[in-house]
Amino acid sequence: MTDVTFILRDGSRRTLDIPEGSSVMQAAVMENLKGIDGECGGCLSCATCHVYIEAIGAGELPPIDEEENALLDGVAAERRPESRLSCQILATPGLSGLVLRVPERQM
């Protein structure tokens, strides 16, 4: 299991314990975490699971591939260097301690 902390729009923090192999987006949607929509269910067509990486735990995030990069250009909130789509981040034990900030909007 991987602890991932979300900083929500109101500034509060919520930590989810995500099973290995599940995407961060999927876990957030299934836990009704406000601010992560994930409409397309993780098939890289909607860009509504945008997050800002605040802090990385011990491990490393997977690199941004071409498709994610193209979709990040279309996110509703500002794209920043720390922008990622949370459907592309799969939970691994090494990622425990990851901290993500939810953007102001997804649409």
Binding site: M30, C40, C43, S45, C46
Partner: peptide, 18 residues
């Protein structure tokens, strides 16, 4: 709906749910 995958052509559905 935990098993669905919406595409861009489903945008009215997502707008309605909002």
């Amino acid at each position: 709906r935990t098993r669905e995958h919406l595409g861009q052509s489903d945008k009215a559905i997502t707008a309605y749910r909002r």
